[in-house]
């Protein structure tokens, strides 16, 4: 059995365990608010393509856009702060002062400034992820021992060469971990923002089903949201597997 098969089997086992637990609770409670999984999956198969898929696509696009923006801004900032210690002295206070602000508290302001549409939601996700990326990349670069640079310095390497051969590969594992940790928060925050000012997105769909007292659809939405999370984590794991190959030896 190869590695891929082992991973697949453990995922199937995990999903099976969750399903059995869910089923047990549903059977015990016998309430419409906790429907059995078979009914939910039946419903899902009927409504996924005609109804849910478009909501899922919207949610995925918002996460992808927020994440891309956070990496585009956060990674270079983290590199600058980690490699040029003098800039860190001035930038660190700024980051530390703004990092603890609960970003969700800014949502009303964001919606006033950036509108109720896509932009405010993408910026929200960006704000949640960017700080973790900055800190992780900076700390990842700081832990590189000075001697690691010596062979390149004595070869007269340019900054771009040092970046390519040392900074990028050395900071990659911590960077990927930061994205992974931030992703879970981003999904929950996304859910919240999608309950305002939109008719699309998994957050809207789930809340709408709830208000229509359509519990089966609500659960179908929750299952899809969980699968979106699984997809995102899977992609991150895959990227890590190939980009940080040297770590797994």
């Amino acid at each position: 059995m190869n590695k891929g098969e082992i991973v697949l089997r453990s995922y199937i086992l995990g999903a099976g365990f969750l399903l059995v637990t869910w089923w047990g609770i549903a059977l015990l409670m016998e309430l419409p608010i906790v429907p059995a999984p078979d009914k939910v999956f039946m419903k899902l198969s009927h409504v996924f393509l005609p109804v849910i898929a478009i909501h899922g696509a919207y949610s995925l696009w918002r996460i992808a856009a927020g994440l891309a923006l956070a990496i585009l801004v956060g990674y270079p900032l983290g590199v600058v702060m980690g490699y040029f210690q003098r800039t860190d002295r001035y930038l660190a206070p700024l980051v530390y002062l703004t990092y603890p602000i609960p970003k969700i508290a800014l949502l009303p302001i964001l919606m006033l400034l950036a509108g109720l549409g896509e932009l405010s939601k993408v910026i929200m996700i960006f704000l949640i992820i960017v700080f973790q990326v900055v800190i992780a990349v900076r700390d990842g670069i700081r832990t590189i021992p000075e001697e690691t640079y010596y062979p390149l310095y004595s070869l007269g390497a340019s900054f771009m060469q040092v970046f390519r051969d040392i900074i990028l590969p050395a900071s990659l594992p911590k960077f990927i971990t930061a994205v992974r940790v931030a992703m879970a928060t981003a999904v929950s925050v996304l859910f919240f923002t999608e309950t305002f000012g939109t008719q699309y997105g998994m957050g809207y769909f789930i809340m709408d089903a709830w208000l229509r007292v359509n519990y089966l659809e609500m659960y179908a939405g929750i299952v899809v949201l969980s699968l979106i999370g699984l997809l995102l984590f899977g992609v991150i794991d895959l990227i890590e597997h190939y980009a940080c190959r040297w770590q797994h030896r």
């Binding site: 001697e147 690691t148 010596y150 062979p151 310095y153 004595s154 070869l155 007269g156 051969d165 040392i166 590969p169 050395a170 940080c244 040297w246």
Partner: peptide, 22 residues
């Protein structure tokens, strides 16, 4: 001494191998 124009081979105590390169 100028590392940019000269070819200086420097081998540090730990050999200076980069762990992420084969």
């Amino acid at each position: 001494i100028n590392p940019r124009t000269m070819k200086i081979g420097f081998m540090p105590q730990n050999y200076g191998l980069l762990p992420w390169k084969n």
